[in-house]
Amino acid sequence: MSEVPRFWRESRHRYRLVGTRCTNCDTLYFPPRVICPTCRRESVGKMKEEEMSGAGEIYSFTVVHDGLEQFKMQIPYVMALVKMKEGPFLTAQIVDCSPEEVKIGTKVTATLRKVRSEGKAGIIQYGYKFTICP
């Protein structure tokens, strides 16, 4: 089944790291949430979209040697938990580097890349990945 509608609904979040901030408790969530899990009904109508800066650091990571078919060309590649400057954690691929260059605490910055495509004729899904800051 095509993922076009889901991809389209999430595109701005994936392209620009747009999350939602609960203006009741001032917590930023990514992926975006409709209500704050802490403030619950108090947050209704108080969740505001907010774009993150793209700056973060590696909290933890793993090196993938046996990847998904679509990532076969990129193995070995690094998947990391990135702690964003604004607070949220997210899982993402670290690109344009060898696994030896990646360390816990390494500063990274978001970059827009192709994530996957639905075959040669299908839609191309773009989203965030990260590169190491010089």
Binding site: M73, V95, D96, T111, R113, V115, I124
Partner: peptide
């Protein structure tokens, strides 16, 4: 270009 780069990603950067 890397395997995940194309004209859209290059233009965006």
């Amino acid at each position: 270009p890397g395997p995940d780069e194309d004209v859209l990603t290059i233009s965006a950067e």
